[in-house]
């Protein structure tokens, strides 16, 4: 059986990857961010997952204008690190878990969430920065990873409500995997408020972000009612990535225990938010 131990949310700012890769984590500007991830580093050891189900978005890396899947699942044995324009990040190749990934794909499609299946894909900072934040610099990732890219680049992204319900279906599918005993942690990445484009670039909405953090554990239903217009207006044009946090939340048990919360402005252009939840399975 597979068991969902808990979930973790985090921003995936590319500059955080660059700071780690270039040895800048002790500089005061960056240290203020990385200090917020100390708890995650010890928690992940305690949780000792076999698999991370990692919800993120591709940033015009694997998916160009030619092909834009709304929800997709990585079923390959491994996922090479993409060259995003300055050479690939110096991090290990990501190893997948095809047995669980294919099981989830089949279950969720029969549960009426139509996923795109990926057998070959390079992964970008959206996936590798969260892994680096939690595991630090390693020679091999000590965990298998199922990449789950969500379109948030081409408008409209899937709705908050759709994401939450999809998360529920994913949770059910993961729990119904019987081939092996697996400990699974679900990551929901992206956000929090930020805007990278136009004359309103640099927008941060701390009040919105903190309210989101307050609600996602005990009352995620309230967040499923946030419209695209509200996300775009209140959390910036790129803040809408927060819908991916709701996929993570949906996959966890109805009741969760919040074990860590962090919020910091800025990392480059972005409000960094990070939380850890443990499942409260019956």
């Amino acid at each position: 059986m597979a068991k969902i131990i808990g979930g973790l949310t985090t921003s995936h700012v590319p500059a955080l990857g660059a700071a780690m890769d270039n040895g800048k984590t002790e500089e005061p500007y960056w240290k203020a961010v990385f200090d917020g991830y100390e708890r995650a580093k010890s928690w992940i050891v305690e949780a000792s997952p076999d698999v991370i189900f990692l919800v993120y978005n591709d940033h015009a890396t694997a998916f160009s204008m030619d092909l834009i899947p709304t929800f997709a699942i990585g079923c390959a044995e491994e996922f090479p690190i993409a060259d995003e324009g300055w050479g690939p990040r110096p991090v290990p190749t990501v190893k997948g878990h095809p047995d669980l990934a294919w099981h989830v794909a089949q279950s969720v499609i029969l549960d009426e969430f139509d996923l795109t299946i990926i057998n070959k894909m390079e992964v970008d900072h959206g996936l590798t920065v969260p892994l680096s934040l939690v595991y630090g610099q390693v020679k091999e990732w000590p965990v298998r990873v199922i990449p789950f890219p969500v379109n948030v680049v081409q408008y409209p992204p899937p709705t908050a409500n759709r994401c939450y319900n999809l998360g529920k279906a994913l949770g059910k599918a993961i729990r119904s995997f019987e081939q092996q005993d697996l400990r699974v942690v679900v990551f929901g990445t992206g956000g929090m408020s930020h805007q990278l484009q136009g004359k309103r670039a640099g927008l941060i909405n701390k009040k919105f972000d903190l309210a989101f953090q307050d609600k996602i554990g005990p009352n995620p239903q309230a967040l499923t009612k946030i419209s695209h217009l509200e996300f775009l207006r209140e959390s910036g044009s790129e803040g809408i990535e927060l819908v991916m946090w709701l996929i993570m939340r949906g996959a966890l048990s109805e009741q969760v225990k919040e074990v860590h919360r962090f919020y910091h402005v800025p990392a480059s252009n972005t409000a960094v938010g990070h939380m850890i939840f443990e499942s409260q399975e019956a």
């Binding site: 805007q195 309103r200 670039a201 640099g202 941060i204 701390k206 800025p266 480059s268 252009n269």
Partner: peptide, 14 residues
């Protein structure tokens, strides 16, 4: 501006 908390939402909604 970013170090000081970013561009505020107040006055930048509409």
């Amino acid at each position: 501006m970013m170090l000081a908390g970013g561009r505020p939402i107040e006055g930048n909604r509409s």
